[in-house]
Amino acid sequence: MVATPTELILPVTHQSSGLGGARIALCHEWLTTFGGSEVVAGRLAAALDIEDVYSYTVNEALASELFPASRVQAISRSGRTKLAQRHWQWLLGAMPSAWRNLDLSDYAVVITSSHACVNSIRTRPDAIHISYCHTPMRYAWDWRSEIGRFPGFVRPLWPRVAARLRAQDRARASNVTKFIANSRNVAARIERNYGRTAEVVYPPTDTDYWCPDPSVEKEDFFLLAGRLVPYKRPEIAVQAAEVAGVPLVIAGSGPMLEQVRATSGDNVRVVEAPTRSELRDLYRRAKALVFPGEEDFGMTMVEAQACGTPVLALGRGGALEAVKHDATGHLCGGGSASEFAGAMANFESAAYGADLLRAHAEGFSIQRFDRAIRRIVKASLSLSYGVSS
């Protein structure tokens, strides 16, 4: 998912959640850039009428867009520095203690939007801690795909650091009353890494906004959209497009932007910071969205399908749930550039029905997400406090 903060128009007006007046706080890892986990956090706050949101570091403009009806606070002095805003990953070691020291004693329910250290929080003894887990901590469990984000002098030490982080992350899981996973893929990681079961609630997609436009005609280009980070493997899309001799539009930015530009030919065009409306237009016009990385779930894939565009993706991870193979897209088993090139050369978007694409995407709607989250919180309150709806 790619969009500038000022283009974020998710429906975030709070509704009556029917939770018996229980005070609820939301804790999100960090608010520095706009991405899928931030969209989910914003929707959690809206669905549950959450007034108080906490994050290690806060980009004020982003916070005001995502949480217009909430108070958003950075939890520590270190999180209010420019270093935290620009290089939050360098401060991972400081985050657990910052979260542990946060006073959450006023809240009966604390929701964590977790993918790193936020489950270090301490709640009062009778409180409910529900963790919406985007993935277990990548820097601990999947550190090889993330090590490029760290300074060079740290990298030789990271295998030992990751082993320690895994032990800490596993211990943090014991603080959680209930886990929610964003996919069956992540639920399996939670069980494997933490020994805990998780209920799956897919992330919300604004299917009212991401929709087809019958007046827009399909074009011949493939689209790669999202953050340009190593685990998403943007270089595979670039290599495959060159081999297949097809045009590729890259919509997004990130640490690999310059590498991608340096290795791209004349068939590649980069739209570095697309607005939300520009991204929707690209979805609608693209022959297919290409997604070569293994994703936790893949909101971008659902957005494309909601706009009537099929997906060409690696057949692993979240794509197995976000895409119906040979119905709403094609899944490549091996994931090599040559396999993607062959699929791109022979891809026919007309083979994928717009009605089926749309119907599949609507299964991941905001309304479905809201109902599921409220149901889980109500059930937890009923079990712990006897609160009924």
Rank of each mutant, 00 (worst) to 15 (best):
E191C: 11
F153H: 13
W158S: 04
E191W: 02
F150Y: 15
R155M: 07
T177V: 06
R164F: 04
N175V: 07
N175M: 04
R189L: 14
A162I: 01
R166Y: 06
W158K: 10
V161K: 02
L157P: 07
D169R: 06
D169W: 02
I180E: 01
V154S: 14
P151C: 05
A171N: 09
N185C: 13
A198F: 01
P159K: 04
N182F: 00
N185I: 06
R160E: 10
P156C: 05
A167C: 10
P159N: 04
A163T: 11
G195K: 10
Q168S: 13
R164I: 11
R189E: 15
G195T: 11
P156V: 02
R170K: 15
R192I: 10
Q168V: 04
T197E: 13
A181E: 00
A171S: 12
R170H: 10
T177P: 06
R160Y: 09
P159T: 02
V154D: 00
E199A: 13
T177Q: 05
A173W: 02
R155H: 03
A167V: 14
P156T: 01
R184I: 09
N193I: 09
D169Q: 02
R160N: 14
F153P: 15
G195P: 04
A171E: 09
I180F: 04
V161Y: 05
I180N: 06
L165F: 01
P156H: 05
N175Q: 08
W158D: 03
G195M: 07
N182V: 14
N175I: 07
L157S: 13
P151V: 08
R184C: 14
N193F: 15
P159C: 08
A173D: 03
R166K: 13
A171F: 02
G195W: 00
A188R: 15
A187H: 05
F179T: 03
A187Y: 00
R160Q: 09
N182Q: 05
A163H: 05
A171V: 11
I180P: 11
T197D: 14
A162L: 04
R189A: 14
R196K: 12
E191A: 14
A162G: 10
V176A: 10
A198L: 05
R172I: 02
W158T: 06
N185K: 04
P151F: 03
N193R: 10
I190S: 07
T177G: 08
R164K: 12
A198R: 00
T197Q: 11
K178A: 15
A181L: 02
L165M: 08
T177D: 11
K178F: 10
A171G: 11
V186C: 08
A173G: 14
R192E: 15
A198C: 09
Y194M: 08
R172Y: 09
R170N: 09
S174K: 13
Q168W: 01
A163R: 10
P156S: 06
G195V: 08
A171W: 00
I190G: 03
A181P: 07
S183L: 01
G195L: 03
F153C: 15
R189P: 07
A167M: 12
A173I: 06
T197F: 02
V176M: 03
A188N: 15
P151M: 05
V161C: 05
A198H: 04
V161G: 02
W158H: 10
R170I: 07
I180Q: 07
N193H: 14
R172K: 13
P156N: 02
L165Y: 00
V186S: 03
F153W: 12
R164V: 13
S174T: 08
R164T: 12
V186T: 09
I190P: 06
V186A: 06
Y194N: 06
